[in-house]
C-alpha cells in the first residue's frame, strides 16, 4: 500500500491513502458529503451528482464527483463552498420531485433550504441510480436486471422477464438498496 498523502478539505489538512476517493477521505475525516448512487461495495458510478465538491488550484476551480475522484497530495477540496451549495440545491430540487417519499432526500432538501420543486412529478419513481443493477452485476454476478433504453426512456428491467421467477425470488437483496422509499412499486414495471 502506498504511503499516505495529505490534502486539505474545507481548509483542514486530511491524511488519506491515494487509493481512497475524495469522498472516502472526507468521510473518514468526519466531513459529511451527501450521496445517493454511491455504495461501498460497488464501483463509483457518478450518476446522481449529489456528491459534487469543488477543487481549487490557484484561480482555477472545478466541480467533480467526489465518489470517483481519487485523493492526491496537495488537493484543495471544498465541500460547502457557494459553488458546491448552489449545484447541490439544484440537484436536490430535481430529487425532491422524483423521490418525494424518501425521508433522506426531504431531510437533505430541508437542510439545504430547498422547500419546493418546480419540476414536474412523474408517475415513475425510479431515479435510475443503478444501485440494484450494479449490485446484481458486481456483487451477485447474477445479471438478472439491467438498464434498457436510453435518455428519458431509460429503465430498469428484468432481462429476460422470466429471470424474475428463476433467480430473483430467492434473492431480492437489491431491494434493500433502493433509495426511493417506494419499493417495490418503482421497479420491474418496464418491459423490454
Amino acid at each position: 500500500m502506498a504511503d499516505n498523502i495529505t490534502l486539505t478539505i474545507d481548509g483542514h489538512p486530511v491524511s488519506a491513502d491515494p487509493s481512497q476517493t475524495v469522498l472516502d477521505a472526507a468521510r473518514s475525516a468526519g466531513v459529511a458529503i451527501p450521496t445517493l448512487c454511491h455504495h461501498k461495495d460497488l464501483l463509483p458510478y457518478g450518476g446522481c451528482r449529489l456528491c459534487l465538491v469543488e477543487l481549487r488550484q490557484g484561480k482555477r476551480s472545478q466541480l467533480v464527483a467526489s465518489c470517483g475522484y481519487y485523493a492526491k497530495a496537495g488537493l484543495e477540496v471544498h465541500t460547502r463552498s457557494p459553488r458546491v451549495l448552489r449545484a447541490r440545491k439544484l440537484v436536490l430540487e430535481v430529487l425532491l420531485a422524483l423521490m418525494p417519499y424518501s425521508e433522506e432526500i426531504r431531510r437533505l432538501a430541508h437542510e439545504n433550504e430547498v422547500t419546493e420543486t418546480r419540476y414536474q412529478r412523474t408517475m415513475h419513481y425510479c431515479v435510475l441510480c443503478g444501485l440494484c443493477v450494479r449490485y446484481c452485476d458486481e456483487v451477485k454476478h447474477t445479471n438478472c436486471i439491467g438498464f434498457v433504453g436510453r435518455g428519458v426512456e431509460r429503465n430498469v428491467a428484468w432481462v429476460p422477464p422470466d429471470r424474475y421467477d428463476q433467480t430473483c425470488r430467492t434473492c431480492f437483496e437489491c431491494m434493500s438498496l433502493c433509495p426511493t422509499g417506494v419499493f417495490p412499486s418503482n421497479f420491474g414495471l418496464a418491459e423490454v
Partner: peptide, 16 residues
Amino acid sequence: KEESCGKCLPCREGIR
C-alpha cells in the same frame, strides 16, 4: 433529449 444517455440525473431530468 433523444440523445442523452440517461445515466446522470442533471442531464436526463434537466433536459426533460
